[in-house]
Simulated assay, not measured.
Amino acid sequence: MYRSVFNDSRNINGIDVYYEYYLNEQSNETIVLLHGFLSSTFSFRRLIPLLNEDFNVISIDLPPFGKSGKSYNFIYSYENIARTVISLLESLDIRKISVTGHSMGGQISLKIASLRPDLVKKAVLLCSSAYLKRSKLPLILSSYIPYFHLYVKMWLIKSGVRNNLQNVVYDHSLIDEEMMYGYMKPFLEEDIFKAIARMIRDREGDLHSNALKQIETPCLLIWGEHDKVVPLSVGKRLTNELNNSKLIILKNTGHLLPEERPDEVYRHIKEFIYS
């Protein structure tokens, strides 16, 4: 089997978008991975090698996270981020994909499926964000205040990397120095906080029920039984509103599925894609 890896960044819609492209010349299937809020392609580090045994894999850093651009002028709405991912795939001459999104990346995956059903063959939603409303007006107005990004920075520092990981991982013994540094590294750049402040203003809220019910793309939902960030009840509701969907629940698992259960997630994805 011939496999190769390309790491690159392309300017799409006025912002640099970083992606990792893992080729598998024996496969005609391409899986696109979209990470969650405050995360990056790093969160798929244990899942990518498994998927690449059977698929071409493209893992994207959604702006403003990871190694992608952090421009204060970019519009960080889910729709614009989804259209940016679509444009990136078009620039790579990718015509058909299965998309896998974790948390916020799941909501953007649904947005892509809604915008371009011809592009998305199947969708895998890992503890997907759903039913979140737009930020309240006082917070949106606050985002216009000069140096508001410093409040964002202070909030993130106060919560701490270890505390955040303990909130998303069921088995805390998985948290080691490599994991902590991998999730902390993108936040060593000052521009990320300005971009997140802009994202608070731009995020339009998750797809409403009527829009979800119009999505015909086959969807596999995989959820951690003990997810504290996006509770299992959200997954059950989402399954009921997506016309062509199935829910799988992983026991003794939290929110960070790609880190906690890469082998099981891989097995379920493979079965779903080839079914």
Rank of each mutant, 00 (worst) to 15 (best):
H268V: 00
Y131R: 10
L174T: 05
P186I: 02
W155N: 14
W223I: 08
L220D: 06
I97F: 08
Y19A: 02
G36W: 04
R3N: 07
E259W: 11
A197F: 04
A211P: 00
L89C: 13
I97A: 11
Y151H: 08
R267F: 09
S233P: 00
V57G: 08
F272N: 10
F55K: 09
I112A: 05
Y72K: 13
L115C: 08
K96W: 00
I157D: 15
M154L: 14
D8Q: 11
L250E: 02
Y274A: 02
N28V: 05
I75R: 12
S39A: 13
V229E: 11
R201H: 13
L34K: 10
I157W: 14
I48F: 11
T100A: 15
E204I: 06
L257H: 13
D54I: 00
F148T: 04
L188A: 10
Y274D: 03
E225D: 11
L23N: 12
N252W: 06
L23E: 11
K194V: 01
L115N: 08
S68E: 01
L110C: 09
D93P: 00
E260M: 09
I196E: 05
V85T: 15
V17L: 07
M199T: 07
S27F: 10
L132F: 15
E225C: 01
I192S: 08
H226T: 01
Y19Q: 03
D176S: 03
N243M: 13
S9H: 03
M199W: 13
D227H: 08
L110M: 13
I145Q: 09
S128V: 05
G224M: 08
V234W: 08
W155Y: 11
M184D: 12
S135N: 10
F65I: 02
L207V: 12
L232M: 12
S245N: 04
A211L: 10
Y21R: 11
I196W: 04
L92E: 12
G66H: 08
S275I: 01
D61K: 13
D16Y: 10
G224P: 10
S27H: 12
L174S: 10
W223C: 10
D202S: 08
H149T: 00
T239K: 15
